[in-house]
Amino acid sequence: MTGQVRLPETPAVLAVRRGVREWVAARGGPMPVVVGLSGGADSLALVAAAVVEAGDVTAIVVDHRLQDGSGEVAARAAEQARALGCVAAEVVAVEVGRDGGVEAAARVARYAALESVRGERPVLLGHTLDDQAETVLIGLARGSGGRSIQGMAAWNEPWGRPLLAVRRAQTRQLCADLGIEPWEDPHNLDPAYTRVRVRTEVLPLLEDVLGGGVAQALARTADQLRADGEVLDALTADLLRAATVGVDGRRGSDRPAGTTGNRGSGPGDSDRPALSIEILATAAPALRRRTIRAWLADQGIGGVLNAHLQAIDELVSNWRGQGGVAVAGGSRDHRLVVTRAHGTLTVRAQPRNDAT
Rank of each mutant, 00 (worst) to 15 (best):
V52Q: 12
V52K: 04
V52I: 02
V52S: 12
V52P: 00
E53H: 07
E53W: 06
E53L: 12
A54V: 11
G55L: 04
D56F: 00
V57T: 07
V57K: 03
T58Y: 04
T58H: 13
T58S: 14
T58D: 10
T58Q: 13
T58E: 15
A59N: 06
A59T: 11
A59H: 06
A59M: 07
I60E: 01
I60V: 15
I60K: 00
V61W: 02
D63T: 01
H64P: 00
H64M: 00
H64V: 00
H64L: 05
H64Y: 02
R65M: 12
R65I: 03
R65C: 13
L66Q: 08
L66Y: 02
L66V: 05
Q67A: 15
Q67M: 14
D68L: 12
G69I: 05
G69T: 07
G69D: 09
G71L: 09
E72M: 07
E72R: 13
E72Y: 02
V73K: 12
A74W: 08
A74K: 04
A74S: 10
A74E: 11
A74P: 11
A75W: 03
A75P: 07
R76T: 14
R76Y: 05
A77E: 11
A78R: 08
E79V: 11
Q80N: 08
Q80P: 08
A81S: 14
A81L: 10
A81Y: 08
R82K: 10
A83P: 07
A83D: 14
L84A: 11
L84C: 11
G85P: 09
G85K: 03
C86I: 12
C86T: 15
C86Y: 07
C86Q: 12
C86W: 09
V87N: 02
V87L: 08
A88M: 08
A89L: 09
A89M: 09
E90H: 14
E90V: 15
E90I: 13
V91T: 04
V92T: 06
V92A: 09
V92S: 03
V92L: 10
V94F: 03
E95M: 01
E95F: 02
E95H: 10
V96C: 00
R98G: 13
R98A: 15
R98V: 15
D99K: 11
D99M: 07
G100Y: 12
G100R: 12
E103M: 15
E103V: 14
A104P: 04
A105I: 03
R107V: 13
R107P: 00
V108S: 12
V108T: 15
V108G: 03
R110H: 06
R110F: 07
R110K: 13
R110D: 07
Y111R: 02
A113N: 09
A113V: 06
A113I: 03
L114A: 02
E115A: 15
E115M: 13
S116C: 02
S116A: 15
V117H: 01
V117R: 10
V117L: 09
V117S: 01
V117P: 02
R118P: 04
R118I: 03
R118D: 04
R118L: 06
G119Q: 10
G119L: 07
E120G: 14
P122A: 08
P122T: 10
P122F: 05
P122M: 09
V123T: 02
V123G: 04
V123E: 03
V123L: 03
L125T: 12
L125W: 01
G126H: 01
H127S: 14
H127G: 03
T128F: 02
T128R: 09
T128G: 09
L129Y: 09
